[in-house]
């Protein structure tokens, strides 16, 4: 048995304190302790990216991060992307451009794309393809995911320009 630890994590802006096993994976903490089931498990080995969340703004695969490693950190998941009824431009793009089919990889794909656009607001198609290459999608063939991210990038840039104008 592994030891128990109290952790405090800010998840999608709200602070939570829980006791977890030392070996509890961050993805299980999110899905089972906090019932945030939008983050999915696809491979358990950091290969598929379905479990991608942000840990202090950095995209990580939560199937190979321990919950205790998130102690004191900010964790952002797909559930925190939209602002109430207003979708994030990435969510809008995925819907507009048919960037998803079964939806299983979608939350991880959205979170990976969000980090990509934070680092590179105007990526080329190739940069987008490399940027999401840690996330596997079995349904879409990626064309429309790329288009969805391009849609969001443009929308975010326009919003940024408006804010500066």
């Amino acid at each position: 048995m592994s030891s128990r630890h109290g952790i405090t994590v800010t998840v999608n802006g709200a602070q939570v304190t829980r006791e977890v096993d030392a070996r509890t994976l961050l993805v299980h903490f999110l899905r089972e302790d906090l019932s945030l089931t939008g983050t999915h498990i696809g491979c358990d080995t950091t290969s598929c990216g379905a479990c991608t969340v942000h840990l202090d703004g950095v995209a990580v695969k939560s199937c190979t991060v321990f919950a205790v490693q998130a102690d004191g950190a900010n964790v952002d998941t797909v559930e925190g992307l939209a602002d109430g009824a207003t979708l994030h431009p990435l969510q809008e793009g995925f819907w507009e451009k048919h960037g998803l089919q079964c939806g299983y990889c979608t939350p991880g794909m959205l979170m990976a794309a969000k980090e990509l656009l934070a680092r590179n607001p105007d990526p080329t198609e190739e940069e987008i393809r490399f940027g999401i290459s840690g996330n596997l999608c079995r349904c879409t063939g990626y064309n429309k995911i790329v288009e969805a991210i391009q849609y969001a990038a443009q929308k975010l840039r326009e919003a940024g320009e408006e804010a500066h104008a």
């Binding site: 899905r31 945030l36 939008g38 992307l81 819907w95 998803l100 939806g103 299983y104 979608t106």
Partner: peptide
């Protein structure tokens, strides 16, 4: 546009492990 997408893009799909 697909009618099922709103739940998937918000992480509200409901799969067996959920």
């Amino acid at each position: 546009k697909r009618k099922e997408d709103p739940r998937f893009i918000r992480g509200q799909g409901h799969y067996v492990d959920d």
